[in-house]
């Protein structure tokens, strides 16, 4: 992957369940409004690729990583926790620790609903800053925006109030967009979601 693509790519590690969709949309919006490309396992690049290989490749291709552990809880059906998010966080940390110079430049943010909850289940990441969003999409936008602004050192990233106001407009439009497309709000694919944000940004850019 070329250097500009690597430096503009953000790996989004979070659950893809229905209850997390509003938060997922908010994170994707924030990444795109900061001028970056969100990437995640839902990208449909190669259907034949083994899922873990796809995740490894995505992690390798992204300088930045957003890891949301807030959905790390017991599944009511199986009574077991879902470990995909901590696994992908571990892969990202491993790439940063053992990779080449470019991989070592990786930056990540760990988010959770509560700032200290991780200490009870993955205490080995103590020392990493964990940002709490309290399950609120607007707080998540602020966290992602502030983090990307700091680690990328880009001056072009809009302020949090401006970005949240834009997200509120997008969030108001989203159900209508889905209704016009004749689908449920959960139905658009990841690529469709990126497309709605991109088109929305173009249409709502201030001259």
């Amino acid at each position: 992957m070329s250097k500009p693509a690597y430096a503009n790519s953000v790996f989004v590690n979070c659950p893809f369940t229905s209850d997390f969709k509003p938060m997922f949309r908010a994170i994707v919006f924030a990444v795109m409004d900061c001028g970056f490309r969100p990437r995640c396992a839902l990208e449909d690049i190669d259907g034949g690729e083994v899922r873990l290989q796809k995740i490894e490749r995505l992690i390798e291709d992204c300088k930045f990583g957003i890891h949301d552990l807030s959905n790390m809880k017991l599944d009511p059906d199986t009574g077991l926790p879902r470990f995909n998010m901590p696994l992908e966080l571990g892969l990202f940390l491993g790439a940063k620790r053992y990779g080449d110079t470019s991989q070592k430049s990786k930056r990540l943010i760990i988010m959770d609903s509560d700032r200290f909850r991780y200490q009870k289940c993955i205490s080995d990441i103590s020392g990493q800053d964990v940002d709490a969003h309290g399950g609120d999409p607007k707080t998540a936008i602020r966290r992602v925006r502030d983090w990307l602004s700091t680690v990328s050192k880009r001056k072009s990233i809009p302020g949090p109030t401006f970005m949240i106001a834009r997200y509120e407009d997008y969030d108001r439009d989203y159900p209508t967009i889905c209704s016009i497309l004749k689908c449920d709000e959960d139905e658009p694919t990841f690529n469709d979601l990126l497309e709605t944000v991109s088109e929305w940004q173009k249409l709502n850019a201030e001259a």
């Binding site: 795109m32 689908c183 690529n191």
Partner: peptide
Amino acid sequence: RKIYEPARGGK
């Protein structure tokens, strides 16, 4: 501002 434009939609 520079933003990312995906190559294509999905569905």
